Amino acid sequence: MTEIAEEVVLYHNGTRKYVNQEKDDVETSVNYSMEKFSKEHAATFLLKSAKVAIGVRLDPKE
């Protein structure tokens, strides 16, 4: 189920299908990056999201 209560089927290959929508109306691939991310030494302030489990490090002097 999506955040707006749409029912989906998730497949192991990274694709999905909406249960109650036409096939042509839906993008079925999920793009993701294998790039490794790192933080700058001066980025000491952690800004956390209130909605998802994610945080971003910021330089408090900028």
Rank of each mutant, 00 (worst) to 15 (best):
M1Q: 10
M1T: 11
M1H: 10
M1L: 09
M1P: 02
M1K: 10
M1V: 12
M1I: 13
T2Q: 11
T2Y: 06
E3H: 08
E3W: 12
E3D: 07
I4E: 14
A5M: 09
A5C: 06
A5L: 09
E6Q: 14
E6G: 05
E7T: 10
V8F: 03
V8P: 01
V8W: 07
V9L: 14
V9I: 14
V9G: 05
L10Q: 15
Y11F: 15
Y11S: 09
H12V: 11
H12N: 12
H12Q: 14
N13R: 12
G14L: 10
G14C: 13
T15H: 11
T15F: 08
T15L: 11
T15Y: 12
T15A: 12
R16E: 03
Y18R: 08
V19W: 04
V19M: 08
V19I: 15
V19K: 15
N20K: 11
N20L: 09
N20E: 13
N20F: 13
Q21E: 11
E22L: 13
K23L: 13
D24T: 03
D24W: 05
D24Y: 02
D25Q: 07
D25V: 00
D25S: 00
D25G: 01
V26E: 15
V26D: 12
V26F: 07
V26C: 14
V26K: 09
V26I: 15
E27Q: 06
E27G: 08
T28L: 10
T28C: 10
V30G: 00
V30H: 09
V30M: 13
N31M: 12
N31F: 13
N31S: 07
N31G: 04
Y32F: 14
Y32N: 08
Y32C: 08
S33D: 04
S33T: 02
M34R: 15
M34S: 13
M34Q: 13
E35I: 01
E35D: 02
E35H: 06
E35L: 05
E35A: 02
K36G: 07
K36L: 01
K36P: 01
F37N: 06
F37Q: 08
S38P: 07
S38A: 05
K39F: 07
K39Y: 02
K39P: 00
E40S: 03
E40V: 00
H41F: 04
H41R: 06
A43Y: 01
A43G: 00
T44H: 04
T44A: 01
T44D: 09
T44L: 03
F45R: 05
F45D: 12
F45E: 13
F45C: 06
F45T: 05
L46S: 11
L47N: 06
K48Y: 04
K48C: 05
S49E: 03
S49R: 08
S49V: 02
S49D: 11
S49H: 11
A50T: 02
A50F: 08
K51H: 07
A53F: 07
A53C: 14
A53G: 09
I54H: 07
I54G: 12
G55C: 12
V56Q: 11
V56Y: 07
V56G: 00
V56N: 03
V56I: 15
V56D: 06
R57E: 03
L58T: 01
L58D: 02
L58K: 01
D59N: 15
D59I: 06
D59L: 04
P60V: 02
P60R: 04
P60N: 07
K61F: 05
K61Y: 10
K61E: 15
K61R: 05
K61C: 10
K61S: 15
E62I: 15
